[in-house]
C-alpha cells in the first residue's frame, strides 16, 4: 500500500504527535559527532523541484543524507520540463530509474496529489510545497518548534499543543504555509487566529477551523506564538494594499508591538523574511525570534517524515524505543465522486 504526505489535513493527532516525537529522536543525531543513520541505506529519493526553493531543497537533502538515502536532485530549470515535457512523463522517467520516494515542489496547487493518485507512479510522494495549497513539512517543523518552546523539549514528548494560542499574520490568501498550519495546529488542539488585511484573506475562510481578525494589536496580547508570513512587495501592484509603508504600519511586527506580547511568547517566520516589510530587523534578530531554530528543526522533521514513510519498520536509533507499531496514515481519503444528492 502506498503512503504519502500530501496535506497537513490528512494527519490525525496521533500521526502528528508521532512525527514530532520521532523528530526529537532525529534531533539527537544532529548532536552527535557523526550525524548519520543507516536507516535508508539503499533507498533512492528524488527531490523534484519545479519551483526554485533552495532552502527547502537543502533541508530535504540534508535529511535524506543523514538517513543514508541516495539522493537525486532534479531542478526543472534547464531540464526537459522547460522543453514541454509533462509532469507525468518526468515522474515516470524518474520512477523507471528506481526511485522509492519523490519529494515534490510544484507551482501548481494539487500537483503532488495528482502525482500520488493518478496511477502515474508507485513511489511515495512527499509534498514540499504546492502552489498556494499545502506545505505539510513546514507546518510540522513549526509545530515542533512551538512544542519545544511552549511545552518543553522533554516534557513535550507525546503531547500536543492544546490550548496554545497561535497567531498567523500576513498574506494568508497566497500562503500554503498558512493553510498547512491552520490544519495541523487545529488537529493538535491549538487555537489559531489569522490576521491580515481583508484583501489577503480568501473568500471561504469562514469554514476554516480558526478565527480571523483584521487587527494585529488586539490579537498580539493574547498570543503564545506569532508567526509572520512573507509579504511580496509585488502584491501592492495588484491593489491588495496601498503601499509597503502602510502595510508595515498596520500589519508589520516591530519592537514596540513585540513588547505587547506575553513574556513567554515567541516570534516565528517560515522564511525568507522581507526585513522592513512584515518584520523589522530588531525583531528578526531578537532572542524571541525562532527563525534559525525553525531551519534546524526542519531537517529533524523531514528525517522523521521520510523515516516513517519509507523505513518505519526498523528503529530509527539503536538506543531508541521499540519499532513504532503505527505509521502515519497519510493516504488521502478518496474524494466524493458525486455531490449532487447530498
Amino acid at each position: 500500500m502506498q503512503r504519502h504526505l500530501i496535506s497537513a489535513a490528512d494527519l490525525t493527532r496521533d500521526d502528528a504527535v508521532l512525527i514530532l516525537d520521532t523528530a526529537e529522536e532525529m534531533a539527537r543525531v544532529a548532536d552527535r559527532p557523526i550525524k548519520k543513520l543507516p536507516t535508508l541505506r539503499g533507498r533512492t529519493i528524488v527531490n523534484l523541484f519545479f519551483e526554485d526553493s533552495t532552502r527547502t531543497r537543502i533541508s530535504f537533502e540534508a535529511a535524506e543524507k543523514r538517513l543514508s538515502a541516495d539522493v537525486i536532485n532534479f531542478s526543472a530549470k534547464g531540464s526537459s520540463v522547460s522543453k514541454g515535457e509533462s509532469l507525468k512523463d518526468t515522474a515516470q522517467t524518474l520512477e523507471a530509474m528506481g526511485v522509492d520516494a519523490v519529494v515534490i515542489r510544484h507551482g501548481a496547487s494539487g500537483a503532488p496529489y495528482r502525482l500520488a493518485t493518478s496511477g502515474w507512479i508507485d513511489a511515495a510522494v512527499v509534498n514540499a510545497g504546492d502552489g498556494t495549497h499545502q506545505h505539510p513539512t513546514q507546518a510540522l517543523l513549526d509545530a515542533f518548534t512551538m512544542r519545544r518552546r511552549l511545552v518543553g523539549r522533554d516534557t513535550g514528548l507525546g503531547r500536543d499543543l492544546s490550548g496554545r494560542r497561535i497567531t498567523i499574520v500576513g498574506d494568508v490568501l497566497h500562503s500554503r504555509v498558512a493553510r498547512s498550519n491552520v490544519d495541523l495546529l487545529h488537529t493538535l488542539g491549538a487555537e489559531v487566529t489569522l490576521v491580515a488585511p481583508p484583501t489577503l484573506v480568501p473568500v471561504g475562510v469562514g469554514n476554516w477551523p480558526c478565527e480571523v481578525s483584521y487587527d494585529l494589536d488586539s490579537t498580539l496580547v493574547k498570543s503564545d506564538a506569532v508567526m509572520m508570513l512573507r509579504v511580496q512587495r509585488e502584491r501592492m501592484n495588484a491593489a491588495f494594499f496601498p503601499t509597503e509603508r502602510e502595510y508595515s504600519r498596520r500589519y508589520g511586527l516591530d519592537a514596540e508591538r513585540m513588547a505587547k506580547m506575553p513574556g513567554h511568547a515567541i516570534v516565528m517566520h517560515p522564511g525568507p523574511m522581507v526585513r522592513g516589510m512584515e518584520i523589522t530587523a530588531e525583531v528578526a534578530d531578537s532572542d524571541r525570534c525562532t527563525v534559525v531554530e525553525q531551519v534546524a528543526n526542519g531537517v529533524s522533521i523531514r528525517m522523521a517524515v521520510l523515516y516513517l514513510l519509507l523505513g518505519g519498520n526498523e528503529p530509527a536509533l539503536s538506543h531508541a524505543r521499540q519499532p513504532v507499531a503505527h505509521h502515519p496514515a497519510t493516504e488521502r481519503v478518496a474524494p466524493p465522486t458525486g455531490s449532487e444528492e447530498k
Binding site: D130, T132, N207
Partner: peptide, 18 residues
C-alpha cells in the same frame, strides 16, 4: 481563475472564479 471562488477554492489553494 481556476475554479469557483468559495469554500473549496480557499482550501485547495486554486485561484477563484467568483
Amino acid at each position: 481563475a481556476q475554479m469557483n471562488e468559495g469554500v473549496v477554492s480557499a482550501e485547495l489553494g486554486l485561484g477563484g472564479w467568483p
